[in-house]
Amino acid sequence: MNNKAYPTWFAGGALLLYGVFVLVPAVLGLGFSFTDWSAYSTDIHWVGLDNFAAIFDPNSNYLSAIQNTVLFTVATIALKTVIALGLAILLTSGVKKLSYLFRALIFLPAVLPILIVGVIFQSVLNPDTGLLNSTLRLIGLGGLAQQWLTDVSIALWSVIGVDTWRGVGYIMVILIAGLQSIPRDYYEAASIDGASGRQTFWHITLPLLMPVLLVTTVLNLLYGLRVFDMVFVLTNGGPGFATQTVYTTIFQDFSLGRYGTATALSSLFFVVMLVLSFFVIRVMRPRHEG
């Protein structure tokens, strides 16, 4: 018996739109990544793998952009997950009074436009007049004051820090939902058996929260690999190339009219994202659909 509510052709409209606006541009982009397409000429020539060779040229800045993207992704996953988990536990089983207010305050940065966050933190992290360095100097820790956004060895970490500040509330909310779905019976049983807080965390909370943690990790992973706006507003990829990521580089190449290399890099990451998206779908699909 056919249990479908609608006939298959009903999906035609959506498939057509998806095909025209997603699939066709993606395939065209893949094709253009093998050409010398640029804004400077109307002629387009086949150049084989030249654009990909340029991306993986050890002397180019593309590799450092890829390296920065990976570092950003790994660091933000780790920081957001650890901090958000700590806050989620604190606000579900530690702090009772005004916990909703604290949750709202921690979540607030997630709803701020990134442009606003960028403007605020450019000011906060200004080495001379910024709030951070001024506070450090005020409390006698002037030695810790840094050129947060302009020191090549620190700038990327500053961007990571600001992004963590903005994103931790969002992850925390998901983890709170996960924590609240764990039956209280387990904790009561553990308490009767005399389990310590640490044992309860390692043997009850963490294993039962693992599916949720997997989801947040995958979300952070996809976000991290696609990061653009936070870098763009805070450092614009600088100083020098110190904070360039894959997507700021693609944007730069497009705006310089180097469509060939830009499409090559975006095609490369399209494939990476496709594989990761497949992974996301596998992870998020409920087991019984198997």
């Binding site: 804004a39 400077y40 090549v152 990829g237 020098g240 190339f241 180097r258």
Partner: peptide, 30 residues
């Protein structure tokens, strides 16, 4: 951007000039 890389020790003055030349070649050929 190249000059900032030079100021921050990531490129030499010669390297910056080479990058300018390389970019000129790219644009001229295009």
């Amino acid at each position: 951007t190249d000059m900032v890389a030079m100021f921050t020790g990531k490129a030499t003055p010669l390297k910056v000039l080479q990058l300018i030349d390389a970019e000129r070649t790219l644009e001229a050929k295009a």
